[in-house]
Amino acid sequence: MRILVGLTMSALMAVAAVQAFSPRHTQPLAATRLAIEKIQFNTVVQSKAALVAGGELGKLLYSTNQGQDWQQAKLSKDRQALILQVAFAGDGMRGLAVGHEGWILQTTDGGLSWTEVAFDEKNGEPLMSVANIEGHRWLAVGAFGRAVQSSDDGRTWSAYQLPEGVEDKHLNRIVGAADGAQWLIVGERGLVLRSHDHGQTWKQEPEFYNGSFYGALPLDKNGWVVYGMRGNIFVNHNAAEAWRAVKIPAPISIFSGASMANGEVILVGQGSMVLTSQDHGDHFSMHRLGGRATLMDIAVGQNGAGWLASDQGLMPYKAEDLKSPAK
């Protein structure tokens, strides 16, 4: 009997030893979900490789499946400085991100990874906006009239001289038209600078509003819409035409927008409000997407749906959301 028990125990130990050292196929860990609804985002844009967003603490995220999943982009240095805008060149792969402390990051893979090219924590005023002017030339603008340019796709930068009188004004946005020749820079105290020659020279528009402009959108035939504080929107359908104020239902500040090929204009701002125009910016309807978020930017997809960057995270929307009026 003792021999039988001993043989049984030996067999069990042998089986246990085999199981202990045999290869095991573990289940893959669940993907870590980024809490995109808890991060403040100031910018969202579609590149050729991904949907790219940037915001607080230097966060740069991307999604390669239209927002179903988000991943943190690789950064050469994590400064945790606020990202204010991401912009891409026409090829959709070369891009720059700008923010506080004069932070500039460069990407060549559509926003999946970024390399720091400039940072100045002591004397670096915020850079508010950046744009690919032409070819490898970029221009970035920011606080207190600061402007810097690069002729090598953002690898090196030098000071850029704008017209006199803008030194003490914040430059909030630089925007180009489809032809590549027409550009606007808008900013504090009604500042509008216009260029007709690919950003080589700039001329200040006669003052027509004394509040801050936060952005601009190009229209067809060299027209523009500019927008800013307390719902102030102005439209200009050609360079010879005077700027005309456009009335909207509520005095909400407007921070970004998109202009479509069919003439539709979309603007986003305070209180989760979206303004849409079907007549090239002459009249606007107001829509609320729910909640009270401050909408900072919009990326429109091909089917009319898209994503919004806000102080309450990244928010998807559907085309039909922009068809129901605000309540």
Rank of each mutant, 00 (worst) to 15 (best):
G180F: 15
A181E: 15
A181F: 11
A181S: 15
A181C: 08
W183A: 07
W183N: 07
L184H: 13
L184V: 15
L184A: 14
I185M: 06
I185C: 05
I185R: 10
V186E: 10
V186D: 14
G187I: 03
G187P: 06
E188W: 07
E188H: 07
R189N: 08
R189E: 14
R189M: 09
G190E: 04
L191S: 09
L191P: 06
V192I: 11
V192A: 02
L193D: 09
R194N: 08
R194F: 10
R194M: 04
S195T: 03
S195Q: 01
S195W: 00
H196G: 06
H196K: 13
H196L: 02
D197L: 11
D197Y: 09
D197F: 11
H198D: 02
H198G: 11
G199E: 01
G199Y: 00
G199H: 00
G199S: 01
Q200P: 01
Q200L: 14
W202T: 01
Q204S: 02
Q204N: 00
Q204T: 00
E205I: 12
E205M: 10
E205H: 01
P206H: 05
P206Q: 09
E207T: 14
E207M: 15
E207G: 10
E207Y: 00
F208R: 01
Y209N: 04
N210M: 08
G211H: 06
G211S: 13
S212H: 11
S212E: 05
F213N: 07
F213L: 14
F213C: 06
F213G: 05
Y214D: 03
Y214T: 03
G215S: 08
G215T: 02
G215E: 09
G215W: 05
A216I: 00
L217A: 13
L217D: 12
P218D: 03
P218T: 13
L219H: 14
L219D: 12
L219G: 15
L219Q: 13
L219Y: 13
D220T: 15
D220S: 15
K221V: 01
K221M: 08
K221N: 15
K221F: 09
K221W: 04
K221G: 10
N222V: 00
N222K: 10
G223M: 11
G223S: 07
G223I: 04
W224C: 07
W224P: 06
W224S: 06
V226Y: 02
V226K: 00
V226W: 00
Y227G: 04
G228P: 08
G228F: 03
G228E: 06
M229C: 05
R230K: 14
R230A: 14
R230F: 10
R230C: 02
G231V: 11
G231N: 05
N232S: 14
N232C: 07
N232T: 09
N232R: 02
N232L: 12
